Amino acid sequence: MVLTVLNVAYPFAPVGLDAVGGAEQVLSALDYALVQQGHRSIVIACEGSSSAGELVPVAVESGRVDETAHERAWAAYRAAISEVVHDETLDLVHLHGIDFPAYLPEGVPTLATLHLPLDWYPTSIFHLQADLRLHCVSEAQHATRPPGAQLLPPIPNGVSPKLFATTCRKRGHAIVLSRICPEKGIDIALQACRLADTPLLIGGQVFPYAAHECYFEERVRPLLDERRRFLGPLGFDRKRRLLAAARCALIPSLAAETSSLAAIEALACGTPVVALPNGALPSIIEHGKTGFLVRDAREMAEAILATGDLDPEECRAVAAERFSLETMTARYFDVYGRIGRQNGEEGALEKTG
């Protein structure tokens, strides 16, 4: 069965093989897999994105992302989605943005992947039309669903096989890959590396939200120096080399991580992970085997120094067994196929509560 799938990205984050955000990376992986396996892939995303399938670029305003910018982006997205739905025979629309209710199509089978903590979404999403299916990206996230919410089984994230093949001589630096915003706790990683006298490389992006820019200027920039540097967004090849060469990866997130792609990518490169035990991270990191779970910057500093005793090949093996990109895409394609065959009939797809 040849599928035609429309993937819709968050309006303010470009997608492509060098995408920064986890949701954008998953969307890009699905787009490329659809094309490789002979299906038709259509992607709606902001200008500056790239895709293997047919890209429908949508212009969004540059500058600070505020309420007005959101409203205009949502209007543009509604128009673009409506045009594609009108002109194409789609098997499925797959939504990835946290703001998807603002441009949710009607009358077409739709899947929304909940990439972020469930309490960040409006509760109304769990009581929308029958054409919409929802799912999480980890069992830990799925377990936080509201009473009565009907979700498909979770589909764990997977990472590129190129990461498993990346080998570099280990150097002394730690690395953080993240959006730069308060809930990601970048300042905690900087404090820990200062305590451990360890170099730190920070790869990521400061998106133009007022709170994010303020956090970077007030909490991150003052802690940067010659040995602890902010590199900005990293392309895929540079990212995997820096990950593979790192002593360890740090995940100081204060949010309930749903499925940390940064942690999984690090393990795939043979690099142990030191993290705060929030959300799904305790289910990703095996304490004392593939990394350490810590409570604060001081414990993180101690764990950074202890990661030299962990086996990189053990990290790689665990990631290969649990976080295969092939397994992830196969599970998505199974859902795509079932929804496509049932043509959006209400209640036809088995759900789990």
Score class of each variant (00 low, 15 high):
27 L>M: 09
161 P>F: 07
286 E>I: 14
95 L>S: 04
52 A>P: 03
342 Q>P: 14
104 L>S: 03
215 Y>V: 09
41 S>F: 02
331 R>N: 07
172 G>A: 06
235 G>W: 02
324 S>T: 02
83 E>V: 13
254 L>A: 06
322 R>T: 03
172 G>V: 06
256 A>Q: 14
26 V>M: 07
109 P>N: 03
184 K>Q: 06
212 H>R: 15
45 A>V: 05
307 T>Q: 12
202 I>D: 12
157 N>W: 08
308 G>V: 06
159 V>P: 10
230 F>H: 01
207 F>R: 15
248 C>F: 02
313 E>A: 12
79 A>D: 11
35 V>S: 04
111 L>G: 04
141 Q>H: 10
133 R>I: 14
24 E>N: 06
88 E>Q: 07
329 T>D: 08
260 S>D: 03
127 H>V: 15
320 A>D: 10
132 L>A: 08
50 S>M: 02
241 R>S: 08
67 E>P: 04
350 E>I: 11
92 L>M: 07
204 G>F: 03
235 G>C: 00
264 I>W: 05
250 L>H: 01
191 Q>W: 12
103 Y>E: 06
242 L>W: 09
153 P>T: 06
90 L>H: 04
330 A>P: 05
230 F>P: 03
60 V>N: 01
342 Q>S: 15
296 D>C: 07
163 L>S: 09
70 H>S: 02
91 D>F: 04
130 A>N: 15
158 G>M: 09
12 F>Y: 05
294 V>P: 05
148 G>P: 00
52 A>V: 07
148 G>M: 03
45 A>I: 05
171 R>Q: 13
329 T>Q: 05
201 L>N: 10
130 A>Y: 14
122 P>A: 01
149 A>T: 03
333 F>E: 05
162 K>R: 15
74 W>I: 01
113 T>Q: 08
185 G>E: 10
325 L>N: 06
246 A>H: 04
298 R>K: 14
308 G>M: 05
89 T>L: 14
200 L>I: 07
127 H>C: 08
40 R>C: 12
87 D>K: 14
305 L>S: 12
116 L>A: 15
272 P>H: 06
159 V>K: 11
176 V>S: 12
190 L>Q: 11
26 V>K: 08
134 L>C: 09
73 A>N: 02
157 N>Q: 10
297 A>T: 11
274 V>H: 07
19 A>S: 04
142 H>I: 03
105 P>V: 10
131 D>L: 11
126 F>E: 00
198 T>P: 14
106 E>K: 15
116 L>T: 14
105 P>R: 08
244 A>S: 01
146 P>Y: 01
170 K>W: 09
257 E>V: 01
13 A>Y: 15
137 V>K: 02
98 I>H: 10
81 I>S: 05
305 L>A: 13
129 Q>D: 13
293 L>I: 02
34 L>A: 09
24 E>W: 11
105 P>S: 10
170 K>S: 13
77 Y>Q: 06
276 L>N: 08
